[in-house]
Design a protein around this nucleic acid. Structure first.
Length: 613
RNA sequence: GCGCCCGUAGCUCAGCUGGAUAGAGCGUCGGUCUCCGGAACCGAAGGUCAGGGGUUCGAAUCCCUUCGGGCGCGCCA
């Protein structure tokens, strides 16, 4: 397990002028995040008023105020307690507000409306936070609430039968961002990709490649509907002919066809099976298997490369075939022998007893184990390898399988709650107002590779991660290409580039600066735009925590846009280099802190923080 | 048919697990600078939160229901 946050961030440069890390160690304060510190204060103030009831509130009812007129933070504690205390909420609010002692964090407290407690932070506290940001540098925003719990994040796991499409891209971006967030919040994270290389689909892939090889020799040869029709199959066929001369030789001789081609659906599937058998007879079992295996490996190589270029890496690629050959599945079935039963020649797992819809087959009548069996074994293995939490990021079409895997885990003595599944909805692609179908078989789909090349990694990742996973996502390709310059990601990145540019200009003018200079004059940061910006900066830690806990990367993406907004607003209203020396130093500190927070936040999304654009 | 998810501005989406007058980007309209990068800033218009009921101090958020969309329901993976 590696610290990806560090990887992501250590490469980033600091804006302190000479490129070396700035802050002395002693300035790194182990203080809680701003919001957490506030809720602690509030809880203390709550005790004398509400006694035992106070503990029932989450964060003491504290939340960010939506409207600036209602303070920086607001608490609804009084209203939530009114029922239990049988007292009017406004009265309770008054008492709590009075009890919020003159702590240095708090600038002003007011009660309002039906019983809200509105809190304004003290400018001094916000200014002190700037020093902390610069001191903690790349670590600002991270915390240790994870308590080193081990989380195994499994994501993408697309079948190696074709290139990744834009739907997989969403899984990749969301899964990777979640992993980064979990690392930043003190979890130990493993990233895994499960490779379905054991089933029928590889035979279909092999068949598809083989038939294209035949077609290369004889243009009149047919190609069935149930096989993979994508263009990448043609490339694989070309390569296969070079790699396996005996197969190429066989392709020249051609292959007989079983019978007339049935048109659609299940019949097409059955026909493909018949074709697979014919191909096996023509080529021999071994050669036919080689074609499928090789093609699968090549496709997987492509997927690996694709993801790497997308900024997504995995600690482990778990092959399903390996689970089978290593006997892990058999071992797992043995453990389940007490509960499984035979019916119609197959071995069944009584999933219904464990809350699933119905019982499931684990070993077919012909003796082969099912996908479900390997899936139980895989997830059980994850637990045995020491993972506390199994976090699966899956396409929404997998929701039916959550229940059975949980059932399997439970039957094996593992807590079903250790499996946590994040279902990510499909991506609907539109081009020219028309919906683009996305099926690997039909061959008509937009690849992640194309998307990357056309809109760029940063824009694509930011776009994916800006939407809640459970939300259906419409991806208009024309719009994505045409408006890529209007993408919010550039707005955020531009803020970062402006900071870099500012410091370059500073050097060009021969102005010196150190964070200590800034700290000395930080008290001058009183402009409303400065308060807004400092407040936004101080919210990174609570935002990261919230995004991680809720498994909701979009929270961070939206935060960054609002932070960039605060930055641009400030930058347009407050001169930095042209300000008088004291104020200039204070503002340079603010700019440096802004660059740091932007960089940290973007890093957690896997988006670059450029110094110029 | 049964089950899961979704429906918020013209478009794409947020909305901190029940809080105050529902927000942002794009698009539209109108402004800002002898400006440290205008990929910026400031402002305006635009909403029966799909419809209807309920729960309570308070609902886009929770419950029921209708409508609309997506996805599942294999001895496929």
């Amino acid at each position: 397990m590696r610290g990806r946050l560090e990887d992501a961030l250590s490469a980033a440069e600091v804006f302190n002028g000479n490129g070396t890390p700035t802050a002395p160690e002693h300035k790194i304060l182990r203080r809680p995040a701003m919001k957490k510190a506030l809720s602690k204060l509030l809880e203390q103030a709550l005790l004398p008023v509400a006694g035992d009831h106070a503990g029932r509130l989450r964060h003491a009812g504290l939340e960010q105020a939506r409207d600036a007129r209602n303070g920086h933070y607001a608490s609804s504690a009084a209203m939530q307690l009114a029922g239990r205390l049988k007292r009017p909420p406004a009265e309770i609010a008054e008492e709590i507000a009075a009890g919020l002692s003159q702590h240095s964090l708090i600038g002003r407290v007011e009660t309002a409306g039906p019983g809200f407690i509105n809190i304004w932070l003290d400018p001094g506290a916000l200014q002190a936070e700037l020093v902390r940001i610069v001191a903690e540098s790349d670590a600002y925003g991270s915390c240790d609430i994870g308590g080193s719990r081990k989380v195994l994040v499994e994501f993408v796991s697309a079948n190696p039968t074709g290139p990744l499409h834009v739907g997989h891209g969403r899984l990749a971006a969301v899964g990777d961002c979640l992993a980064r967030l979990l690392e930043a919040t003190g979890h130990e994270v493993w990233r895994e990709y499960y490779v379905n290389d054991a089933g029928r689909q590889l035979a279909v892939l092999g068949l598809s490649v083989w038939l294209r090889m035949v077609q290369r020799e004889n243009a009149g040869a047919r190609f069935p509907e149930g096989a993979y029709r994508g263009e990448y199959i043609l490339d694989l066929a070309r390569r296969m002919a070079d790699e396996l001369p005996e197969a190429a030789e066989a392709a020249r001789k051609g292959m007989g066809w079983p019978e007339d081609e049935p048109a659609h659906g299940k019949d097409a599937d059955r026909y493909v099976d018949a074709l697979i058998n014919t191909a096996r007879e023509t080529l021999g079992d071994e050669l036919f298997a080689d074609i499928g295996r090789l093609a699968g490996e090549w496709v997987l190589d492509d997927i690996r490369d694709d993801l790497e270029q997308f900024g997504v890496g995995f600690d482990h690629w778990q092959s399903e075939r390996e689970l089978v050959t290593c006997g892990e599945i058999d071992a797992c079935l043995k453990k389940l022998a007490g509960v499984t039963y035979r019916r119609d020649g197959a071995l069944w797992f009584p999933a219904e007893k464990y809350g699933d819809e119905k019982d499931r087959v684990v070993v077919r009548a012909d003796g082969r184990s099912t996908y479900f069996a390997s899936d139980i074994a895989y997830h059980y293995g994850k637990r045995k390898r020491g993972a506390d939490v199994l976090l699966d990021v899956l396409g929404a079409d997998h929701h039916g399988y959550v229940g059975r895997v949980r059932a399997g885990l439970e039957a094996l003595g593992e807590p079903p709650s250790s499996l946590e599944v994040l279902l990510v909805q499909f991506v609907a692609l539109y081009r020219g107002g028309e919906r683009v179908a996305m099926s690997t078989r039909g061959g008509e789909f937009e690849t992640l590779r194309n998307l990357r090349e056309e809109v760029g990694v940063d824009a694509a990742r930011f776009f994916y991660v800006s939407r809640a996973g459970e939300q259906h996502l419409d991806f208009d390709l024309d719009l994505a290409r045409k408006q890529s310059n209007d993408n919010p990601v550039y707005y955020v990145q531009y803020a970062h580039a402006r900071v870099a540019s500012l410091f370059e200009k500073m050097h060009a003018r021969g102005i010196g600066f150190s964070p200590d200079d800034g700290e000395e004059h930080a008290g001058l940061l009183e402009h409303p735009r400065e308060i807004d910006l400092m407040l936004a900066l101080a919210r990174l830690p609570e935002t990261v925590e919230q995004a991680a806990v809720q498994r909701a990367p979009q929270v961070l993406a939206h935060y960054l846009v609002s932070l960039a907004q605060a930055f641009h607003g400030w930058y347009n209203h407050c001169k930095v280099l042209d300000a008088e020396p004291g104020l200039r130093r204070a503002r340079l500190l603010l700019a440096q802190a802004s660059g740091q927070v932007l960089r940290n936040g973007l890093g957690l999304l896997g988006v670059s923080a450029p110094r110029s654009m």
